[in-house]
Design a protein around this nucleic acid. Structure first.
Lengths: 110, 110
DNA sequence: TTGGAGTATGTCATAATTGACATAGGCGTG
DNA sequence: CACGCCTATGTCAATTATGACATACTCCAA
């Protein structure tokens, strides 16, 4: 519960520009963030390519527009579970999701 | 919050052999479960290949042995977040994780 | 300007997950 | 057998995520 907790806290601060804070970040957490960003981008891409509004997608996944917005913003309050579930509902296959995650390797998130 | 809720409930029952229940399951949820199983298998594989006990891994990720056990059992009470974080801590790259997820396409979970 | 559609952001009660702990079972060794 | 190590399973208080709601903002068309 060390990095775990710190991560939760930092999601509020978002001192991304601050080099000190940034360098203090465990590389694992950075990878995790990039992975989340990749999935977030995938959700938006898939949603838009289907001509859906955030509200429409929210209906399909049994959530709300605000949560979809937070999800696409990779907000710290949304879990990978929600993102993955959403992707599957929009029609992404596990293979598609794998492809998105691979992008986190190159740092190309969206 | 429809399938979402049903899924949460069924994690307790685990009537996997029951065809009626099984067929009632939304295919999306099945995909999600397979994806989780794939990651769970990946955690166990990685952990064992590193010669770590569940307790040892638990220490590294700041969790407990019981949670690692549940995680490897793809227990309904563990999130993808925890699984992915664990994988990253053991040394898996996003690419490795993507590879695991791809297995969910073929149904080959472990 | 006015209005509607889409999106972003914040808050809240409720629901879910978390680590910790207890405990039981398996399995090999002394 | 008894002991230690590993794993499985259940429970619980505390923490966190969730959907719903309110509200503000941008575009764009009438």
């Amino acid at each position: 519960m060390k990095n775990e907790k710190r991560f939760r806290l930092e999601r509020a601060g978002w001192v991304v520009g601050d080099a000190t804070q940034f360098l203090n970040l465990d590389p694992r957490e950075v990878q995790f963030l990039e992975l989340k960003l990749a999935l977030a981008g995938g959700v938006r891409q898939l949603r838009e390519s289907h001509g859906l509004s955030q509200a429409a997608l929210a209906r399909q996944i049994g959530s709300s527009q605000s949560r979809v917005a937070k999800m696409e913003a990779a907000d710290g309050s949304v879990t990978l579970d929600l993102m993955v579930r959403s992707l599957l509902v929009i029609g992404a296959t596990p293979g598609d999701i794998a492809k998105l995650i691979r992008r986190a390797d190159k740092g190309q998130a969206a």
